[in-house]
């Protein structure tokens, strides 16, 4: 979870990612951010994030991202 927060904070230092749970809905993360986020997560957790996972539900908060990563790690 901390790693995820770190990656996110790299992208947008000004956002409090612990609390925010509308990262996509409020357009805090744009598609460019998503791409670099996916690249970082892939690297960091050694997972493959298939494109069908890229939906708002999975990226709206740090917790949601964490959940997705956990799920993909299990597969």
């Amino acid at each position: 979870m901390d790693i995820i927060i770190d990656i996110l904070s790299d992208l947008h230092p000004e956002v409090d990612f612990e609390k925010c749970n509308s990262l996509i809905d409020d357009k805090i993360l744009d598609s460019f951010d998503i791409v670099s986020l996916v690249a970082d997560l892939t690297d960091e957790f050694d997972i493959a994030i298939p494109v069908e996972e890229i939906i708002p539900k999975n990226f709206n908060s740090a917790a949601a991202i964490n959940e997705m990563v956990k799920r993909l790690e299990d597969e």
Binding site: S31, V35, S36, V38, A39, D43, I49, V51, I54
Partner: peptide
Amino acid sequence: FPISVSKPMLKLSKTCRKNFNDAIGKRIPV
């Protein structure tokens, strides 16, 4: 998204990061 987060693209990005620098590598997929 299918292009930018595809495996080959992420691989390419990684290679570029190694061979050039982070900034270029990151930009490649986008």
